[in-house]
Amino acid sequence: MARSITMQVARYRPDREAEPTMQSYDVPLRKDWAILDGLNHIKDELDGTLSYRWSCRMGICGSCGMTVNGEPKLTCATFLTDYAPGPVRVEPLRNFPVVRDLVVDIGDFMAKLSVVQPWIIRKDEETPDGEYLQTPAELEDYKQFSMCINCMLCYSACPIYGLNEHFLGPAAIALAQRYNLDSRDQGSADRMDALSASTGVWDCTYVGECSTACPKNVDPAGAIQRYKLTAATETLKSFLMPRGGR
């Protein structure tokens, strides 16, 4: 195995440069080095000015999403050897404004989070004395959608979001479904406006790129499809029972 690999890294400092450029660095090619280890080697040993986000380096905090050889990846869980002999190209996530080098602006997603009201909504005023009972089967109903680490790989992969930034997008919709399907929640009607709006589920043409990109098997595309069915039924119900007979 070669001893080193070339990393081509996107650089962009808005105070300095009008547009992004690529810069090459040679880093050691080690069996257990993730792309992130390569970036850390660059920052610590070669060029302190490179900026990117990372924290947990165990695939759970969702900070380190980037575009690696054209695909959205968690760089702490993607290994250099898979790209040998190289070069391997590291760019910021697509579909987001670039703040600097490999750092993108996810403010849009953070704002959309609140729109889908991702918290338990109860119609009863009193909080219970103990726990709400929930069987393992009921937990299973929404569990997959609760595994999202907000890494934004799905938004980066989504062609619809690329064209229309108003689209709620895969992770936000999956999160809404995570609560809609939770046996403790009574708020699906409250979330309906946001989900059925023109920027909600109907924007999705079921390309499915989001689920392919997702590193945590959340299957946001599945969440969207499932909600379309629910929404269609609800709409039908509202025609049949206009005064909300439930």
Partner: peptide, 19 residues
């Protein structure tokens, strides 16, 4: 911990639905 449960934390459960 019960508040966390009421807020929606997906605790693993016993077959009867208890935490």
């Amino acid at each position: 911990m019960l508040r966390l449960e009421n807020w929606g934390c997906p605790w693993s459960r016993e077959p009867d639905g208890r935490v």
